[in-house]
Amino acid sequence: MASQGTKRSYEQMETDGERQNATEIRASVGKMIDGIGRFYIQMCTELKLSDYEGRLIQNSLTIERMVLSAFDERRNKYLEEHPSAGKDPKKTGGPIYKRVDRKWMRELVLYDKEEIRRIWRQANNGDDATAGLTHMMIWHSNLNDTTYQRTRALVRTGMDPRMCSLMQGSTLPRRSGAAGAAVKGVGTMVMELIRMIKRGINDRNFWRGENGRKTRSAYERMCNILKGKFQTAAQRAMMDQVRESRNPGNAEIEDLIFLARSALILRGSVAHKSCLPACVYGPAVASGYDFEKEGYSLVGIDPFKLLQNSQVYSLIRPNENPAHKSQLVWMACNSAAFEDLRVLSFIRGTKVSPRGKLSTRGVQIASNENMDAMESSTLELRSRYWAIRTRSGGNTNQQRASAGQISVQPAFSVQRNLPFDKPTIMAAFTGNTEGRTSDMRAEIIRMMEGAKPEEMSFQGRGVFELSDERAANPIVPSFDMSNEGSYFFGDNAEEYDN
């Protein structure tokens, strides 16, 4: 993207840094990872977990959730003011799984939030270390993106479920800051804005008074975040219109849905970061690795190297396929839920299948599930090659597409044709070009129609051997075009429920 120079890199967003050079960025990201790792080690000690239990991804998720809940100030305040039966607002906890007599047992633990905050700050040299908290939120978000298709949420806001490739980060909490905003897809931002506008339509006082002023500035800020994701002048001009509207209503909703559809071809720039579970960072720190000293990046080879040398386990339900569970977590670790499966298959070195073909449910185990038949197995999170994460949407291309997802959002900077089903997408653009945004709409449609099938995206960008740390010898991959490109292809993934 041309304006790259004016933006802070995501590592800076990730670490609240002012302008830093590459070495400083690597050190501050490393410091953040160190903090998460030290916190995780301490929690495993508190909970008396064995090494194996500490490497269980379900335990990692519970521990991450506990610290996120302990620092969720708004919710904590709300819980104190609106006490609900049987919930102690000062405590947080969740299921911890232990191996007892050759069987997995679930144990519900409860801790004072104050105590968890103390352990977290102690692991982070006394700081609140917001960057580390956001990092864990993005890992949870990436896992949700890989596990669930947001059909219901899309339909509720009037969008087409086939636009799911635009929904990265749709389950990120509001408090995820600049680093969170960077990884949100165009569809996620559109959905947040539509929800806001709908509230304004239904509630006369939404934009009024002292609160209304705050609401208005939040609305304009979200519009600017979305505008910054678009790469064409016409899309940005249309966002200006939406932002400046005196009284946002149905016309703005129409414009936003139009823009979301246009992003299936004229893709937005959305950041991709490899955020790993805390149970990967903990053992690495415990083994003596100093992330701050060595430096770390979320968008280069580092996460690949770390996963190459990590042992992570997962509980497996009786009829689940461990290899499929591994694929789910591998995609989440690489922030690749909406990437082209052919690119992923090449990088991973084994075939990556669409969601609907995987015999696996989510990673988390519900409290009512029976533990008797639970097994555990090693997650295979290694890769054959590594590639640089991208934040450009890439230019655009036609490809055989599917009944489910009709476009992709690249996660890796790797040369390819970008699949999208042009006739299906263009069919949504018939007729409606009147109104105050008509010239911009016409211009956007013209650009979409001009998108050429034979153009290559990320020209000359390749993948790298894991021994090639400096990215000196790019390998331009070859793809098996007979395979499906979309992950949520004609899909039956479970729906995400809060």
Rank of each mutant, 00 (worst) to 15 (best):
S60F: 02
N59L: 00
F71D: 13
G462T: 07
E210H: 12
L307C: 15
K305T: 03
A337L: 03
C223E: 12
M426Y: 13
A234K: 08
S262T: 06
R208F: 12
Y385I: 15
S482F: 10
R152M: 09
Y40T: 01
I201N: 06
A2R: 07
G404I: 14
A234H: 12
G212V: 08
Q405H: 04
Q459N: 00
P410W: 08
Q327G: 13
R221E: 08
S9M: 13
W330I: 07
N432K: 06
R355N: 06
A123E: 12
P248F: 07
K184D: 08
K357W: 11
Q42H: 08
G435E: 12
R470A: 00
A22T: 15
E434D: 02
Y10N: 00
Q459E: 14
P89V: 00
R19K: 00
K351Y: 01
D51L: 00
L328N: 07
T92V: 08
F71R: 04
W386R: 14
M371K: 03
S407P: 10
D439T: 09
N395M: 07
F429G: 06
D302G: 13
S165N: 08
I257S: 15
F464H: 03
T390G: 07
S170E: 11
D421L: 15
T390E: 10
E64A: 01
A237E: 04
Y496E: 11
R106N: 05
Y219Q: 10
A234M: 12
Y97N: 13
M13R: 12
K214Q: 14
E46Y: 14
L61M: 02
V280E: 15
A70I: 14
F304D: 12
L306S: 04
W139V: 09
G169I: 04
V190G: 15
T134S: 02
G185K: 08
M136R: 15
I225R: 12
N142A: 13
K113Q: 15
F304G: 02
S383T: 01
R400S: 07
D255P: 07
A271G: 02
G17N: 03
E434N: 01
I253M: 02
F304K: 12
A2H: 13
M448C: 08
T433V: 01
R317Q: 11
Y111I: 15
T45M: 09
N124H: 00
M371T: 08
R121I: 02
Q231A: 01
